[in-house]
Structure formats: structure tokens, C-alpha cells
Amino acid sequence: MFIRCAFFKGRVKPGMEQAFDRHVHETLVPLWTRFPGALEVRVLRQLESDVGDPELAMVLSIRYATREDIARALDSPVRYESREASKALFDMFDGTVFHTVFSAEEFVLPTA
């Protein structure tokens, strides 16, 4: 399994928090959940950290079964639509965005 993350390193501009969240939930999540091959979409918001840097305003995490699924999603029309729609986020955000692909293992928790 593979997880592609977009890290929003920085902070949402003061006074823009509600607009940022609304744009993510109302505009972008519906697009991200349509990425071909996506198995799970998570939007993570940092509440606290044991370090001061990096400050992460948001992390987008999308889980895929294969690297080919990621490539297909990145080349899909809905991805280009989401890139265009994401431009509004950058007007509300001070920082940088970068992407990372992780290989992921899952482990079943013991029941007793």
C-alpha cells in the first residue's frame, strides 16, 4: 500500500481559518475523493506538536494500492481540476506545500 501526502508547512493567514476549512471541505474534498484508485482520503490538522518546527497547517493523505494508481490519479482530469481549485487555498496560506509518497504497512491490533 502507498500513501501520498501533501504537507502544508506554515500557517493559515489570520482571519482566514474558516474560509480555508470551508474551501477544503466544500470544494477540495469532493474532488480528492474522486481521484481514480484512491482508497482513502484524510485531511489532518495539527493540534499540537512536541517540536516548534515544522508547523503544519494541514496534511492531505490519500491511500492507494499501487504506485500505478498514484500515477493514474496524478494524470487524471480531476487532479488538474483540484490543482486549479487549490489556488484559492494558497491565497489563504503562508508557507510552502510539498508532496511525499510513503510505502505503508498495516498491522492488526490484538483483540485481547
Rank of each mutant, 00 (worst) to 15 (best):
L39R: 14
D69C: 01
F20M: 12
L56H: 12
F102M: 11
F35L: 15
T100H: 04
P36S: 07
F93A: 04
T100A: 14
R79T: 04
S76M: 00
M58A: 13
H23P: 08
F2K: 05
L74E: 03
D21V: 08
D91G: 09
Q18A: 15
Y64I: 06
F107V: 13
D91E: 15
T96A: 12
L109S: 02
S103W: 07
D91S: 10
E68D: 13
Q18F: 08
E48N: 10
V43C: 02
L89A: 06
A57K: 10
S82L: 01
L28W: 05
L39E: 11
R72Q: 05
G10N: 14
L74H: 06
L47D: 00
R63C: 11
P77W: 01
M1E: 05
R4T: 15
R11D: 14
P14C: 04
A85C: 10
G15I: 08
A112S: 09
A6W: 10
Q18S: 13
A57F: 10
V43G: 01
A19L: 13
L31N: 09
L31Y: 10
V108L: 15
V41L: 07
L44F: 09
Q18M: 14
V24Q: 09
P110C: 02
Q46F: 09
P54Y: 05
P110W: 02
T96D: 14
A85D: 08
K9A: 12
T66H: 07
K13D: 02
I70C: 01
R22G: 01
R79P: 00
H99W: 10
T66Y: 03
A71M: 09
L74Q: 03
V29R: 02
P77L: 10
H25D: 11
E40L: 04
H23C: 10
P14Y: 02
L109E: 12
A38P: 13
P30C: 05
P110F: 02
M58W: 02
V101G: 00
P14W: 07
R83P: 00
I3H: 02
Y80T: 06
I70H: 03
M1S: 14
E26P: 00
T96C: 08
I70Q: 07
L28N: 09
I70V: 14
L56T: 02
L39C: 11
V24T: 05
I70P: 01
L39Q: 15
A6D: 06
L47G: 00
E106T: 13
M1Q: 05
R22V: 08
P30K: 00
L89W: 06
G52A: 10
E55S: 14
R4G: 07
K87I: 08
V24S: 01
V24R: 00
E40Q: 11
D50K: 06
T100D: 01
R4K: 15
R34Y: 03
L60W: 02
L60P: 01
T33K: 09
F107K: 11
L39K: 15
E48P: 00
V12G: 00
E105Y: 12
L109F: 04
P110Q: 06
D21H: 01
P110M: 03
P54M: 12
R34Q: 15
S86T: 08
E84C: 01
M92P: 00
F2W: 12
V29W: 01
R11K: 12
A71W: 02
R22E: 15
A85N: 08
D21R: 11
E84S: 13
